[in-house]
């Protein structure tokens, strides 16, 4: 199937890097031509130099730290409330019946559609940003927890009844492990949504340090270095968060056939 592997058994498959190298090459060759009216200086050297200044002056770190802080705080608030509500709805028959459909319907509101509303409610400052991030993390967390808890199979419920598991044991050794895969999927989604909405909140809701602010400033000043650095950091951080949860998943779900 994999001819490359058959032909060069000891070489790593580097074919994927070809397009990336090409893009880099074109940029290096043609970058200075793009500078002018549209960009300040888009040549690879200039972007690299000004970018380095941004790192040295600490401006980059300041913006990055602010965004990280927002995602951590917002996620902690929204994610924990979401998990609690999802658990409640999943466990309680009446809560499920009363509020389950409501949760499913509210999820359909596009997250950035809430920006104007939160702007009016909380002003354009920090609290509106945190509220947006918390809401972005809330829905995936609540919905995934709710769905996975609700679907606990009767087979497992019966075993728990048969051996007269006490409530705490039932939670810890039956419900939580059963729901965990779904909850972790929710965690991944919630983190990625929270991260997107941090950038969005920083773009839409007034200027304060943050990667969104860096991107916005880059746009206003036509500074490609700022934008490229911003994009790299946003993408890299998103990737790292996802990789961290995947690693956590591998560890926590090692009882699953797919992971061993």
């Amino acid at each position: 199937m994999n001819k490359h592997k058959a032909r060069f058994p000891h070489l790593p498959d580097l074919r994927g890097t070809v397009p990336l190298a090409l893009i880099f090459f074109v940029w290096a060759l043609k970058g200075h031509e793009a500078s002018g009216p549209l960009f300040q200086d888009a040549s690879i050297g200039a972007v690299f130099d000004t970018g380095l200044d941004l790192v040295k002056s600490g401006a980059l770190w300041e913006n990055y730290r602010a965004s990280l802080l927002r995602v951590v705080l917002g996620f902690a608030i929204g994610g924990s409330i979401g998990t609690a509500i999802g658990l409640l709805l999943g466990v309680s028959f009446w809560m499920d019946r009363l509020f389950g459909p409501l949760l499913t319907a509210l999820r359909q509101i596009p997250i950035f559609g809430l920006v104007p509303l939160l702007g009016l409610w909380f002003g354009m400052g920090e609290s509106a940003k945190l509220a947006l991030v918390a809401l972005a993390a809330f829905f995936p967390m609540a919905l995934n927890t709710y769905e996975s808890v609700r679907n606990l199979p009767t087979a497992y419920r019966e075993v728990a009844a048969l051996y007269r598991f006490k409530l705490l044991y039932r939670l810890r050794f039956v419900l939580v492990p059963y729901a965990l895969p779904g909850v972790l999927t929710g965690l991944k989604l919630a983190l990625s949504f929270a991260w997107i909405s941090v950038i969005g909140a920083e773009l839409f809701l007034s200027a304060a340090p943050g990667l969104g602010n860096l991107l916005e400033a880059g746009r206003e000043q036509f500074r490609i270095d700022m934008i490229v650095l911003g994009i790299l950091l946003v993408g890299g951080t998103g990737w790292a968060m996802n990789a961290a949860v995947t690693a956590l998943e591998r560890h926590l779900l090692r009882w699953r056939p797919a992971f061993s």
């Binding site: 087979a155 497992y156 019966e158 075993v159 048969l162 051996y163 007269r164 598991f165 006490k166 044991y169 050794f173 039956v174 492990p177 059963y178 965990l180 779900l253 009882w255 699953r256």
Partner: peptide, 24 residues
């Protein structure tokens, strides 16, 4: 009671599954 499908909890080891029976 032993069911037709073994109904062991997939997230517990054989040992933990057996021990779960006297959790209460």
């Amino acid at each position: 009671l032993v069911f037709q499908d073994h109904r062991l909890f997939p997230w517990l080891t054989i040992e933990q599954n057996i021990a779960s029976a006297f959790s209460s």
